[in-house]
């Protein structure tokens, strides 16, 4: 698991203006689902995390925003420009890292970056070179000679080099070692401090927790939750584990508000899973002579997994 970043956001400085606006966006691949009725917005200066398991629709959403996929219905705009109809203008505002960064294998890192800089125009070459140095990329090697992590560094450098208003990054730390992950977090923090926005997809929850202002969770093509990282934590379940001098009974806790489940599988121990205030549960535990009480703080990962529990269908 990735280490936490020192570049974690402090007080958000985002404005209320939206750089990205997605309204009822749907993309289907023939009869297959891509994304369905996705709506969200990203504010100027905001770092927005996009979470979801494989095949949930993260990359489809990102590629639709980049004008690489044509929406089946709905609309996405960046900077007020339509992502499909005004794709060229949109891309002047955006730096993009695809999920699988692939390029002409015979070109060196330096050639790739300069080629893309020429296509983009208005790239500060000194800044581009500084990115290469910060990411410790050897630009003299050919693309085919790079490891996966080094290919990712080329991809990150080309995404950041134009100092775009919005960075769209699909799994940006994939393949990076921890040191370079830290450098990436710093780049994100600098971008945010500049008042520019970042839209990143990730599987690494601590990374999202420590770098993003808000998070969207996508599941089976539908956005199931959008909120601040703090809001998501409010939804968390907590576990209270109480040890007693004798056998514990589930009935002591099962009627309390917010209690989801009680197990007494271990001898003299009750394990209570609950949401919201745990004062009542603590009181009951003390009343029954609890010798030891411990609470577990579920990570964002636990919350995340709640959203991804498989859809249950009734038995026919």
């Amino acid at each position: 698991m990735a280490t936490t970043s020192s570049a974690a956001p402090t007080t958000p400085t985002t404005s209320t203006a939206s750089i990205v606006q997605v309204d009822a966006l749907t993309k289907r691949y023939g009869s297959s689902r891509g994304i369905d009725d996705v709506t969200f917005a990203i504010r100027d200066g905001e770092v927005f995390g996009f979470l979801g398991p494989n095949g949930a629709g993260k990359t489809t959403t990102i590629r639709t925003l980049m004008g690489l996929l044509r929406p089946t219905s709905g609309r996405a705009t960046i900077g007020g420009l339509d992502c499909w109809g005004q794709a060229t203008e949109v891309k002047r505002l955006v730096g993009y890292l695809p999920g699988e960064f692939s390029f002409d294998p015979g070109l060196t890192g330096a050639q790739i970056l300069n080629y893309l800089a020429n296509l983009r125009g208005d790239v500060d070459h000194a800044y581009m070179t500084s990115l290469v140095e910060r990411l410790e990329l050897d630009p003299t090697k050919k693309f085919r000679e790079y490891s996966r992590g080094n290919k990712q560094k080329v991809g990150l450098a080309q995404a950041f080099m134009g100092k775009p208003r919005l960075l769209i990054l699909d799994e940006p730390t994939s393949g990076l070692d921890p040191l370079n992950q830290q450098e990436f977090y710093k780049l994100v923090a600098e971008t945010r401090a500049d008042g520019r926005s970042v839209f990143l997809s990730s599987h690494i929850l601590p990374e999202v927790e420590h770098t993003c202002d808000r998070v969207g969770i996508i599941r089976e093509g539908r956005l199931v939750k959008v909120g601040g990282v703090g809001e998501l934590k409010d939804l968390r379940q907590r576990v209270l584990e109480a040890q007693f001098g004798g056998p514990a009974e589930a009935a002591w806790f099962s009627g309390l508000p917010g209690v989801l489940s009680v197990t007494t599988d271990e001898p003299n121990t009750a394990r209570v899973t609950l949401t919201g205030d745990m004062a009542d549960a603590l009181r009951v535990a003390v009343e029954h002579g609890a010798l030891n009480v411990a609470t577990h703080e579920p990570s964002l990962e636990d919350i995340f997994l709640r959203f991804y529990e498989p859809v249950s269908e009734p038995v026919a």
Binding site: T108, A110, Y115, V132, T140
Partner: peptide, 24 residues
Amino acid sequence: PRVAPATAMARAEGDISLRGVFAR
């Protein structure tokens, strides 16, 4: 011998074959 990143970047910057899609 390792070429300094800045040198490699400067060389690529002057490469006319990287000026556009046709040239490349």
